[in-house]
Design a binder for these strands. Structure first.
Length: 268
DNA sequence: ATGCCCCATTAAATGGGA
């Protein structure tokens, strides 16, 4: 069976219903993971989303900030949420996807952006980001390494490779691409031997972005992007990877998010 | 300088994004 999962930082789900519709018509994903929904659970646009063909909607949101959601064509079970860094800021939702040969565990996460100054001593937001990554690393390290079949998607807010940013040199001291964050993300990846699905299909020698600032006069012409959104799978699923794609065109849609959707196909 | 916009709150500013 083919399983297509999409992840998208929508930057307000209520403002992006049209974008979600267009995305689902373009790619026909089985499951859509959203971040930055920016809406309390009781105000989530359930009816509009269900009408797009996703009757199974699991939300974990709050007013104004953060928030994650999983939209699915198929029923999911074991839905859980996790909070990190002793906060309740709604950044992680987990579900089991039934599949032949045992289910998959799906993680949908939104890592803190980290503010402006890349120094945890003077910037609490950056300290929060590093602690968030460290706590996730510790938690994933406790899972059984060999057999676990898991997918981690979301806005990890770190662009790890030199080709994940428009200028490695100019972004070395800019939050999202600093060596300390890249190292922390590397430790998270090592916790379970996570495989970077996007880079299995787009070689590390090629530039690849999923985010372009709203502030650029012409995002496409300047093309100063970063790859902040990721799809990772555990080694047990590496052989199931059948494709990955970035919907770059979505950045040019009416009322765009500053992030674009990323798609992965698994052959199970 | 990369860039000075977008989103949610609430009613003109402010906080957050990255």
């Amino acid at each position: 069976m083919r399983l297509r999962i999409v992840t998208w930082n929508v930057n307000s789900v209520r403002l992006r219903i049209g974008g979600v519709k267009r995305l689902t018509e373009t790619w026909r994903p089985d499951i859509v993971c959203l971040q930055e929904t920016k809406v309390a659970d009781e105000s989530f646009p359930q009816i509009e989303i269900r009408a797009l063909g996703y009757p199974h909607v699991h939300v974990h949101g709050m007013k104004s900030y953060n928030g994650v959601a999983i939209l699915s064509r198929v029923p999911l079970d074991g839905v859980e949420v996790r909070e990190w860094c002793a906060r309740t800021d709604r950044r992680h939702i987990i579900a089991n996807i039934p599949s032949p040969g045992g289910g998959l565990v799906l993680h949908n996460a939104y890592v803190p952006s980290g503010g402006d100054v890349p120094d945890p001593e003077v910037n609490d937001k950056f300290a929060h980001k590093l602690r968030f990554l460290d706590e996730m690393t510790e938690w994933f390290s406790a899972w059984p390494k060999k057999r676990v079949r898991m997918v981690l998607v979301g806005d990890l807010n770190v662009a790890p490779l030199e080709t994940d940013v428009w200028s490695h040199k100019q972004l070395l001291n800019v939050v999202s691409h600093t060596p300390v964050e890249v190292e922390r993300l590397g430790r998270l990846a090592a916790s379970l031997g996570w495989v970077d699905a996007m880079r299995r299909f787009v070689p590390p020698s090629e530039r690849l972005y999923t985010w372009w600032s709203y502030r650029a006069r012409d995002w496409a012409a300047s093309d100063r992007g970063r790859r902040l959104d990721h799809v990772w799978v555990t080694p047990a699923l590496k052989g199931a990877l059948a494709g990955a794609e970035v919907l770059r065109a979505a950045r040019g849609w009416e009322k765009p998010s500053d992030h674009v959707p990323v798609c992965v196909d698994l052959k199970l």
